[in-house]
Amino acid sequence: MSATLLNAVWQGLIILVGGTFLGMIYKGLDRKLAAQMQGRIGPPLRQPFFDVVKLMVKENVVPDHAVAWLFNLMPLVSLAAVGTLLFYLPLGGFEPLLGGFGDLILILYLLAVPSLAMVLGGFAAGSPFATVGAQRELVMMMAYEFPLAITLLSLGWYLSSVMPGAQVFSLTVLASNPLWGLVGPLGFIGLLLLFCALMIVTPAELTKIPFDIPEAETEIAGGILAEYSGRNMAMFYLADAIKMVVMGSLTVALFFPYGLSGLLGVTGGIWGSVIDVAFYLVKVFVVIFFAVIVVRVAFARLKIGQAARLFWLPITGISLLGMVLLMLDRIV
């Protein structure tokens, strides 16, 4: 018993450190590639590490108007929530560490925690910029949670109708039964639409351009993060980096859970896992590249009203249409 517990603790530590490292590398890639697309040289790949070390050295200011305990607690909550998310996701083709203890619904709720923590931290900062940012973040959450929920639930529902009795919301089951092979032509279009909806929700979930309205640097001076500095800011920075890995892994687990090792004929053993992990890293990178990096270079920031309307009408429409098509696919 204690041996398995010790094993789990070790694996958990490896996942946490590895996930953080990966998130920082993807963040560095994001900045480097965005710079290249804008015709700049861009910062080195290690830039996020420099940033975090520097932030840890800086003074940690708590403003006079702030509710100090809430202000200091929220970065921790945010970081803890995204760290927990890593345990429920199949990273690198392996079984999730806590796969037996939580499923897609839990992930849906855990995804809301970092954003809510930022909202509370913003309100606790007592600065008008942070308050406006927090209100905007709440509006954004109300806007994008609905299409996100529809997307995730439709996938589970379809799998439950194909495989009655299976634990359809378990990510292990979802990842081992890719829906692309199960659906007919109507369902294929439905899945494609759901995938599009998830890809558009991803930058909003990560508060990246064009949906970085709560953090708009040029109008509300960093918004929610306006009063954060030093160690607290570093924790939000890390949480943001890990969340990128989380969203990438979620998309990969739901839509592209394929491995290369079977195709190359090297199943099992160390080389099989190495190939699968490498392929998984590439898949997450591709998702982040198209959902975050290209989008943030190509578009300007939307206004909060435009973003809310975008998610409530077209994106919700797309995901609902995808759900209906999946249902029709089962009936026809």
């Binding site: 710079a35 040289i41 830039q47 200011v61 993060l225 306006a226 954060y228």
Partner: peptide, 21 residues
Amino acid sequence: TPRYDVERFGIMLTGTPRHAD
């Protein structure tokens, strides 16, 4: 701007003095 591109040295413009060095 891209011509001088200070971000390659890690220099970034922030929106609030709380983030500034």
